[in-house]
């Protein structure tokens, strides 16, 4: 157990980078930045409270749970492992993440899964404007609504939304949901621990009209 009210952030992360144990509890994060950033061992970290920017940034192997809200860029560029936010996540949750699973039990703000590169993001509530911007690979599942400009300039990432989509960004279109997609959603919901009917989700992805630079690319 490490109390950030008494222990400096540096000492916490130094310990987590070369862990003596396999389970940690972090108290009093109070919006601190870079909490549990850069982990690379299969440890479990329970953070009791709200965290600031870049919690579990570049996470590899570790299982990090935030019992509170997360600030900007939670699990940014995650490589593998599991990051779970029990509350809401701020902007750019899971930005550029390459692997692993990010679960946000509440809602995620703008730019959720921006430039996603292969990780999975499952959000219990809504996702904010410009989510999945330039998302390259991986899956984003929103059990609530999606705000404006979903999937703008999206590449090969797949986005599933259960509720309403306010608007789609450039080159993002709704796509047919086939059995393999329902199975994919079911597996992600199960991994995240949400009980929704996979048949309630609609799929969005790239129309691939911006893949080649032509005179039609004015927007």
């Amino acid at each position: 157990m490490i109390d950030l009210a008494r222990t400096p952030l540096r000492a916490l992360n130094r310990e987590l980078h070369a862990p003596a144990g396999d389970a940690y509890e972090v108290l009093n994060p109070r919006g601190a930045h870079a909490v549990a950033a850069g982990l690379c061992h299969a440890v479990a970290v329970e953070i009791r409270g709200h965290v600031g920017y870049y919690c579990a940034g570049m996470n590899q192997l570790a299982r990090v749970t935030v019992h509170g809200n997360a600030g900007v860029g939670v699990a940014e560029n995650m490589m593998s492992g599991l990051v779970r936010v029990r509350g809401d996540a701020s902007q750019s949750a899971g930005a550029t993440a390459h692997g692993g699973l990010l679960v946000v039990e509440g809602s995620a703000s703008m730019r959720c899964g921006t430039s996603l590169k292969g990780a999975d993001v499952v959000v219990g509530g809504d996702i904010g404007a410009m989510s999945a911007f330039m998302a390259q690979a991986g899956r984003i599942v929103a059990c609530g609504d999606a705000a404006e400009a979903l999937g703008d300039s999206i590449y090969e990432a797949r986005v599933y939304v259960r509720g309403k989509v306010a608007s789609l960004g450039a080159d993002c279109v709704e796509k047919e949901v086939r059995d393999e997609h329902r199975a994919e959603v079911a597996a992600l919901l199960a991994a995240a621990g949400f009980e929704h009917d996979p048949r309630d989700f609609r799929r969005y992805g790239s129309a691939r009209r911006l893949y080649h630079f032509t005179r039609g690319n004015t927007y």
Partner: peptide, 10 residues
């Protein structure tokens, strides 16, 4: 209340 970051509201 509003703030740039949550930690100001904590």
């Amino acid at each position: 209340a509003m703030a740039s970051e949550f930690r100001a509201l904590a």
